[in-house]
Simulated scan of single mutants.
Amino acid sequence: MNPTETAAGAAAMPSVTNALVPPHADLSMLGLFLQADWVVKAVMIALALASLVCWAIIIEKSLLLSRLGREIRVLVAASLPGAAPSTVPQGDGLSAHVLQAGTREWHDGREGGESRFEYRHRMEHAMRHVLAGELRRVEPGLPFLATTGAVAPFIGLFGTVWGIMNSFAGIAQSNDTSLAVVAPGIAEALFATAIGLVAAIPAVMAYNRLLVRLNRLRQEGQAAAGDLAANLSRRPPQLGHHRASAAE
């Protein structure tokens, strides 16, 4: 080969290589979003919004469960032998509401013909009813985490399939199967799946953790209510104090 032709071919190589990569192809996350099809963009936006909502729910429920955990510990301490309250406690927390329900039944005393077991069950039922109502306040939002964790990967996969279909259509129109031409479209499509996984993984992990924590608090609260009812049923009710409190 002529040295002159070799040098000319070597000089032409960079231009050929550069021609394979579209100059407008931006493979950054923002670029992949802006270059995507409108359907893929809609999928990305929906998944990003779902992820933001999930994180808001996770933070809010974590703070709420931490506060309820402190209230449950107060209730457990009040259920220890010898620690049962003799007056109706005041306050707006879970422990105060549960103790108020139990001590009110205790101050009312046993009805005629009511056994000690029935008396205890009445107090325990009153406290567990209040406890269940307070803990139900944690449940709203948890189904959204479960739904996002289950559905988000498939929504992202839909965006990926749609983007790949568009890439294949572009290949058919351009009659160019080079990787440099196909790569941007495939990258945009796979980016939708990545966003779906980013939304789904924290949602699933948080849902399982929050649900286990909520069930543990419910079990501890119910056990404390049962112990408190058993302790109160062994004590004579203070009817006079209850009537005075009701009169006030």
Rank of each mutant, 00 (worst) to 15 (best):
A126I: 09
G102E: 13
A146Y: 01
G185S: 12
S178H: 13
R122L: 09
G159D: 04
D108C: 10
L190I: 14
H107I: 08
S115D: 11
I171K: 00
P143C: 01
F168A: 08
V198W: 06
E114Y: 07
S115A: 07
V151L: 12
E111L: 13
E111H: 11
V182I: 13
G141K: 02
Y207C: 01
A152Q: 04
P153H: 01
G149I: 01
V151G: 02
W162E: 10
R209G: 00
N175D: 08
V151E: 04
I171L: 14
F191S: 11
T193Y: 06
F144I: 09
V181F: 10
R137S: 14
S174F: 00
G196E: 06
W162D: 10
G109L: 08
L190A: 09
A194K: 01
V130N: 09
A172T: 00
W106G: 03
A132S: 15
P153Y: 01
G196F: 02
G185I: 02
G109Y: 10
T148S: 01
R137M: 13
T103Q: 09
A194C: 11
V212D: 12
Q173G: 11
R213H: 11
V130H: 09
F158C: 07
A150F: 00
A199P: 03
W106Q: 05
M123R: 08
R136P: 00
Y207A: 08
L157T: 07
E105K: 03
S178C: 07
V161K: 00
R116M: 14
R137V: 13
N208K: 05
G159N: 03
E114M: 13
H121Q: 15
R136F: 09
N208C: 05
P140V: 05
M165P: 00
G109P: 02
F158P: 00
T177K: 10
R209C: 02
V130D: 10
P184Y: 02
H107R: 11
A206L: 02
A200R: 03
L142H: 05
L197M: 15
T193S: 14
E118K: 06
A206P: 02
P143H: 03
H129W: 12
V181W: 03
A192G: 04
A169V: 12
Y119S: 07
L131T: 13
A187K: 10
L142P: 04
R104A: 12
I155P: 01
D176T: 07
F191D: 04
V130G: 05
G170Q: 11
S174H: 00
V204N: 01
R213L: 05
R136V: 09
L210F: 06
N175G: 05
T177N: 13
F191I: 07
G133M: 12
S178T: 14
T147R: 02
R136H: 14
L131I: 10
